[in-house]
Amino acid sequence: MSEADFALRHEAIEQSRRLLQLAERHYRRTMPTPEIRFDLRGQAAGQARIAPTGTQIRYNRQLLHDNPTEFLNQTIPHEVAHLVAYRVFGRRIRPHGREWQAVMAFFGAPAQRCHRFAVKRGTGRQLARHAYHCACRTHALTSIRHNRVLRGRRYYCRTCGQWLRPGAHPGMAGTPADD
Rank of each mutant, 00 (worst) to 15 (best):
D5Q: 11
L8I: 10
L8R: 11
A12V: 13
I13G: 07
S16G: 08
R18Q: 14
R18H: 14
L20G: 00
Q21H: 02
Q21A: 02
L22D: 06
L22T: 04
L22C: 06
A23M: 05
R29M: 14
T33P: 03
P34D: 08
I36K: 13
F38Y: 15
D39N: 13
D39I: 09
L40C: 03
R41P: 05
G46C: 04
R49C: 00
G54H: 09
T55M: 03
Q56S: 11
I57V: 14
R58D: 08
R58I: 04
Y59G: 10
N60R: 07
R61Y: 15
L64H: 11
T69H: 10
E70D: 13
N73G: 08
N73T: 07
N73M: 06
I76F: 03
I76G: 02
P77D: 03
P77S: 02
H78P: 01
E79G: 00
E79N: 02
V80N: 02
A85F: 00
R87Y: 02
F89D: 02
G90F: 06
R94K: 11
R98W: 01
R98M: 03
V103Y: 00
V103W: 01
G108V: 10
A109T: 09
A109E: 05
A109G: 08
A109M: 09
P110K: 13
P110W: 05
P110Y: 09
P110A: 15
Q112L: 10
C114W: 15
H115K: 10
R116W: 05
A118E: 13
V119P: 06
V119R: 07
R121E: 13
T123W: 08
T123P: 06
G124P: 00
R125V: 12
Q126Y: 08
Q126N: 05
H130Y: 15
Y132M: 06
Y132Q: 10
H133K: 04
H133R: 05
C134S: 01
C134D: 02
C136T: 04
H139I: 07
H139D: 07
A140Y: 12
A140K: 11
L141G: 15
L141V: 11
T142F: 15
S143F: 14
H146R: 15
H146N: 14
H146A: 11
R148N: 12
V149G: 10
L150I: 08
L150P: 06
G152K: 08
Y156L: 00
C157F: 05
G161M: 03
Q162P: 05
Q162C: 12
W163N: 13
W163D: 14
R165Y: 14
A168Q: 10
T175H: 12
P176S: 13
P176G: 13
P176C: 10
D178N: 06
D178S: 08
D178R: 14
